[in-house]
């Protein structure tokens, strides 16, 4: 999955996400796949941001830094790229068609 392009990502349309959290750990249920995922604070925040508005990687980095208190930098962008690919593999998010 090439994500060096600046694709915009959104939560996979037509399905619901159900959330629960205890402390800084989250579980989220996806009504399409029927899978339940365990997320840490950063991953959960990233998914919630995409649930509110579709975003591309650089924008997502910025918003995570401001909303989740995650330090922006080279590492964050790389980690997020992997996270997005993982979300896409699980069917949680999809590329917005241009």
């Amino acid at each position: 999955m090439a994500s060096d392009d600046h694709s915009t990502w959104r939560v996979n349309a037509g399905f619901e996400l159900h959330w629960r959290s205890w402390g800084d750990e989250y579980v989220v249920y996806h009504s399409g796949s029927g899978h339940t995922h365990l997320l840490n604070h950063t991953a959960a925040t990233a998914l919630r941001i995409l649930q509110q508005t579709p975003a591309a990687l650089p924008e997502l980095c910025e918003r995570l830094a401001s909303e989740a208190g995650v330090e922006a930098g080279g590492d964050l962008s790389g980690a997020l790229e992997e996270l997005l690919a993982d979300f896409a593999r699980q069917g949680l998010i999809e590329r917005v068609s241009p």
Binding site: R20, S21, W22, G23, E25, Y26, V27, T36, L38
Partner: peptide, 11 residues
């Protein structure tokens, strides 16, 4: 132990 992890184990 963590409730979220216990949730996933139980599921």
């Amino acid at each position: 132990r963590s409730k979220a992890q216990t949730f996933i184990y139980a599921a």
